[in-house]
């Protein structure tokens, strides 16, 4: 039986995917995700209740701040909670992937310096963990909407499409920050601020139609944020609201660009990581 011959050369181009083995990336991401889940609620009192408690608290906070204090209203007479919570699970997913995935390389530098495994597995493992929470939160919303509106339909393809958009956009951002932070940890210092900015600029707690009063002609700039398309997408799927604004393409293109460039960035950093970390 002849065995596979691997070759490594100083002249290998970093984007060369000849030795790229997605199965391996996935199996290691899976192992890390398992570790995270096993460790997740170690030494907590309420344990797994937090999988439900976290989205509930986030929802409650948004309700208090944006509905009761700021008094934002949903369009077309839709109930505010139904409207705002439609895109909340996707935001929580995005936030979780970025917040946990970005520092994952720096946090695991000890393992990185000793074992050669595909580095992308670390940020990717956070996606696997995040998906579990996303599933729980989406199910909670599905039931909430059903009880409130009496509507129990579920558009599988749209749901999968917008979920994938969330994952790819989040991964793209995460790959970028994770890759750069192996050299410049400054990026980890401003990460919470970045997340906060992204939240405020995303139409989660308010409708994207509010954008129209800002920036005038140049409104497309706000659509550079992929969360805009994702958020509008989830609303259109749960609530059959109007989706298309001519600028929304910008968001979809950004999802694609972010992911591809992030992938390139982390591949580039991967080769130098052990020397720079």
């Amino acid at each position: 039986m002849s065995k596979k011959i691997h070759s490594v050369s100083s002249t290998d181009f970093f984007l060369n995917l000849r030795n790229y083995d997605f199965k391996k990336v996935y199996s290691i991401a899976y192992a890390f995700a398992r570790r995270d889940l096993q460790l997740r609620y170690v030494q907590t009192r309420l344990g797994w209740f937090w999988s439900i408690g976290q989205p509930l608290l986030a929802a409650g906070l948004i309700l208090i701040v944006f509905s009761w204090i700021v008094k934002i209203q949903a369009p077309d007479g839709i109930d505010y909670s139904i409207y705002a919570f439609a895109s909340l699970p996707s935001w929580l997913l995005m936030q979780q992937i970025i917040l946990q995935g970005s520092p994952s390389l720096v946090h695991n530098q000890h393992i990185i310096s000793k074992v050669a495994f595909p580095r992308q597995a670390l940020p990717l493992s956070k996606v696997l963990v995040g998906l579990l929470d996303f599933g729980v939160a989406s199910l909670m919303y599905y039931v909430f909407r059903g009880v409130k509106l009496g509507v129990w339909d579920f558009m599988v393809f749209d749901f999968l499409f917008y979920s994938s958009c969330t994952i790819f956009a989040a991964l793209g951002i995460t790959y970028w920050i994770a890759a750069i932070s192996t050299r410049f940890r400054d990026w980890l210092a401003i990460l919470p601020l970045l997340i906060q900015g992204l939240f405020l600029l995303s139409p989660i707690a308010y409708p994207s139609s509010r954008f129209s009063s800002a920036l005038g002609e140049n409104i497309w700039i706000l659509y550079l944020n992929p969360m805009v398309a994702i958020s509008d997408g989830f609303r259109s799927l749960w609530l059959k609201t109007e989706l298309w604004n001519e600028n929304i393409y910008v968001s979809f293109i950004m999802v694609f660009l972010l992911f591809v460039s992030g992938f390139i960035a982390i591949r580039y950093a991967e080769n130098k990581m052990v020397d720079t970390l």
Binding site: I5, H6, S7, S9, T11, K114, V115, A116
Partner: peptide, 20 residues
Amino acid sequence: GLTKPSTGSFKYRGSLTSLL
């Protein structure tokens, strides 16, 4: 495979594991 060489190359047959 932890770091890239600056010059030259190497080949190996089968799987390789390092226990550092």
